[in-house]
Amino acid sequence: MTDTTGTLDEALQRLHASGPERGGWLSNHAPMAVEALVRHGHAPVVHRWLDRYRAKLEDMPAPHSPVTPANWREALGDPARIADWARFFEREVTERPWREVLATWWPRLLPGIAGGATHPVIRTGHAVRTLLTSEETAPRRAELAHALGYWAARHQPLPPLRDLGPALTAAAALDAVPPVPEQEGGIRARLAQLTAVPRWGGAPDPEAALALLTELVTAATHRYATHGHGEPVMLVHAATAPNAVLRTLPALPRALWASSVAAAWSASAAVTAAYTPSEPVPYRAVPLIAEEVFERAAAHGDDHTIKFTDTALDVGDPQALAAAARSIALNPPAF
């Protein structure tokens, strides 16, 4: 991505005065959505989109007390420390190379990948993709800091899960994930009901990790075409969360790749268990063009739809594009 307009940095600077949440726990999706819009050639609509999204933004909460290298463990998973964590990581990425910061904190944060309904890791994936593929600027480093700070504040490990036995493919593993008993309430209440998941991915060597994550993202994206109606907003995260890990992998030491596959699987399986419908609907194959599908998503304006379509374009095959079209049809337009 080469953003010669400066739009992405302008948008990120606008957003960094805002907190990562609103209403107590709903996520601010704007940094992720604007990154996807700019990447796919829609920079001219970003500021107008942000103007409309402004009503969903809240100021960054007041700081509590500084997070430091000595006390970070006691602040981990404390949402009251969101501003403290953002300031901590802003200092970190100013004083050290961002890849070094990421490599230090990735294994610390990874066990809490489901925290914040997986939004923190998704935001991290968008930030890392930008830093890997475009010029490194202060607003782009700051975006990584805010993403990691959000993740640290909402860090929440899943409960211990019983192994249901191996699944040969990611698609088969997702199909074998048992739904949680009470399909009601928010994601935190649903994830607390998780008891068991199939085993998939194993402990791959680094050479296999990229292929396994690609398989998982593809399977979860395809599955939305037939299962997205179970909860059209939340089920996008079964694909976008592991894709965030896939996007981050090239920036990480290879020694962290195997654990990244396992965490991505746990996140995708958890979201699937929380919202999977009782029955699939048929998938209808129709000719679609990737650029036109994203154009429709951008015009639709819904942040989840934009992000899911961005992931579907990464997969790029006909069923992925059909899944993106399904998300456009299922989710209400934003404005």
Score class of each variant (00 low, 15 high):
residue 87 R to P: 08
residue 63 P to W: 03
residue 315 V to W: 02
residue 177 V to F: 04
residue 199 R to D: 15
residue 190 R to I: 06
residue 202 G to L: 07
residue 320 A to R: 01
residue 181 P to L: 01
residue 307 K to M: 09
residue 305 T to F: 01
residue 106 W to M: 15
residue 285 A to N: 14
residue 332 P to S: 04
residue 197 V to M: 13
residue 290 A to Q: 13
residue 330 L to Y: 00
residue 136 E to Q: 15
residue 142 A to G: 15
residue 169 T to H: 04
residue 283 Y to R: 11
residue 33 A to C: 03
residue 100 E to C: 13
residue 6 G to M: 12
residue 179 P to R: 02
residue 301 G to K: 05
residue 157 P to E: 13
residue 327 S to K: 00
residue 115 G to R: 08
residue 153 A to F: 05
residue 268 S to C: 13
residue 274 A to V: 11
residue 173 A to E: 05
residue 209 A to F: 09
residue 216 L to P: 10
residue 333 P to S: 07
residue 2 T to Y: 04
residue 328 I to G: 03
residue 216 L to G: 10
residue 114 A to P: 08
residue 300 H to F: 10
residue 166 P to V: 09
residue 28 N to P: 09
residue 45 V to K: 00
residue 200 W to F: 04
residue 39 R to D: 12
residue 47 H to I: 01
residue 300 H to K: 10
residue 219 A to V: 10
residue 157 P to C: 13
residue 18 S to F: 09
residue 166 P to D: 12
residue 285 A to C: 11
residue 295 E to C: 07
residue 41 G to D: 04
residue 307 K to P: 00
residue 198 P to V: 08
residue 156 Q to M: 14
residue 157 P to D: 13
residue 99 R to G: 15
residue 196 A to S: 15
residue 27 S to H: 03
residue 117 A to L: 09
residue 10 E to L: 12
residue 183 Q to H: 08
residue 286 V to H: 10
residue 99 R to A: 15
residue 187 I to C: 00
residue 232 P to Q: 02
residue 197 V to E: 07
residue 237 H to D: 08
residue 44 P to D: 06
residue 287 P to I: 07
residue 298 A to E: 13
residue 156 Q to D: 12
residue 119 H to E: 09
residue 239 A to V: 09
residue 310 D to L: 02
residue 89 F to N: 04
residue 300 H to T: 08
residue 263 A to N: 06
residue 208 A to M: 11
residue 251 A to H: 10
residue 231 E to V: 00
residue 72 W to L: 14
residue 73 R to K: 08
residue 68 T to R: 08
residue 38 V to L: 04
residue 234 M to W: 13
residue 288 L to Q: 06
residue 112 G to S: 07
residue 240 T to E: 08
residue 164 L to D: 06
residue 192 A to E: 09
residue 151 W to D: 08
residue 12 L to T: 05
residue 212 L to E: 13
residue 183 Q to E: 03
residue 96 R to F: 15
residue 163 D to Q: 12
residue 65 S to N: 07
residue 169 T to Q: 03
residue 131 L to K: 08
residue 296 R to Q: 14
residue 199 R to P: 01
residue 122 I to L: 09
residue 330 L to K: 00
residue 309 T to A: 14
residue 120 P to R: 07
residue 334 A to V: 00
residue 258 A to T: 10
residue 23 G to E: 07
residue 235 L to A: 04
residue 77 G to W: 07
residue 54 R to Y: 00
residue 122 I to K: 07
residue 269 A to L: 13
residue 25 W to M: 04
residue 198 P to N: 02
residue 94 T to H: 10
residue 250 P to E: 10
residue 17 A to G: 15
residue 147 A to V: 15
residue 145 A to G: 12
residue 91 R to A: 14
residue 289 I to W: 03
residue 58 E to R: 06
residue 152 A to V: 11
residue 55 A to T: 00
residue 241 A to V: 02
residue 78 D to G: 10
residue 332 P to E: 01
residue 95 E to P: 11
residue 34 V to W: 02
residue 129 R to S: 14
residue 72 W to Q: 12
residue 254 R to H: 13
residue 259 S to M: 15
residue 305 T to H: 01
residue 217 V to L: 07
residue 46 V to Y: 04
residue 172 A to Q: 12
residue 72 W to P: 13
residue 4 T to I: 10
residue 258 A to L: 09
residue 228 G to K: 06
residue 40 H to N: 04
residue 244 A to C: 06
residue 23 G to V: 01
residue 251 A to Y: 07
